[in-house]
Amino acid sequence: MGVKALTRYALVEALLELAAEDRRLRATLPYGLDPADAEQVEPELTGTVEALRDWLSTAAPTAVAERLRARLWPAARPAPCAPWLRPRRSRG
């Protein structure tokens, strides 16, 4: 038997799913950007963090709760199973 723990990372995943709808966070990185060059990545990362921070300040708890419920509710109710141990019948 196991228990699925709900973690703060589940909230992060729901937030990122919702943030993907923001046009600033979906913007294409500059053509020719070398992802291995930290100096080229830095300004893009800074701009992305700022856009994400702006978006996070407006995140709606209702929308996050709906995402969590949609993802986790079906997994929360396992199918019934037969008892693991059955009482022994006494012979007497």
Rank of each mutant, 00 (worst) to 15 (best):
A5E: 13
A59D: 05
L16G: 01
L68P: 09
R91I: 07
L52H: 06
A14H: 06
P43S: 04
A70K: 12
A70E: 15
A63Q: 11
A59N: 00
D54G: 03
A59V: 09
A82D: 14
L6N: 01
E42Q: 10
A20E: 09
L25G: 05
L56D: 01
T58K: 07
A75R: 14
V12I: 13
A75S: 15
E13A: 09
L68C: 04
A59K: 00
P74Q: 11
L18G: 01
A76S: 15
D34N: 15
L33Q: 04
A51P: 12
A20K: 04
L6D: 01
P87L: 12
L33P: 02
L29E: 06
T46N: 07
L33G: 00
L15V: 08
A75V: 08
Q40P: 05
Y31I: 02
V12F: 02
P74C: 10
A59Q: 05
T7W: 06
A14L: 05
P35Y: 04
P35Q: 08
A27L: 01
Q40D: 11
Q40W: 02
G2Y: 14
R86Y: 13
V3Y: 06
A65Y: 02
A79P: 01
L25V: 03
Q40M: 06
A19H: 00
T48N: 11
D54R: 06
P35E: 01
R24A: 13
A14D: 00
L33W: 02
P43W: 12
D37L: 03
R71N: 07
L45G: 08
E21G: 08
A70M: 04
A63K: 15
Y31G: 03
D37A: 11
E42P: 00
A82T: 13
P83H: 11
R77P: 00
T7I: 05
A51C: 04
R24P: 00
A19G: 02
A36F: 07
V49W: 11
A63G: 02
A75T: 13
E44W: 02
A51Q: 07
A65Q: 06
T58H: 02
T48M: 12
L25A: 00
S90K: 02
T62D: 11
L18P: 05
P43A: 14
M1G: 14
G92R: 11
L68T: 04
A10C: 04
D34R: 08
W84H: 12
D54K: 02
E50L: 15
A38N: 08
T7L: 15
T46E: 12
A51S: 12
R88K: 13
L85M: 14
A10D: 15
R88I: 09
L45K: 09
A76G: 15
E13L: 08
L6M: 06
E44L: 03
P61L: 05
V49P: 01
P35R: 08
Y31L: 07
L68A: 09
E50I: 09
R88S: 15
A51F: 07
S90H: 07
E44Y: 00
L29K: 07
S57D: 09
R67G: 01
R23T: 05
R24D: 12
P30L: 03
M1C: 08
L45Q: 09
K4N: 11
R53L: 10
E39N: 11
R71Q: 12
M1H: 11
V3W: 06
V49C: 15
R86D: 10
A70R: 12
P78Y: 06
R88Y: 12
P80W: 06
Y31R: 09
G92E: 05
T46K: 08
R53H: 08
S90W: 12
C81Y: 03
T28M: 03
P78H: 07
P35N: 02
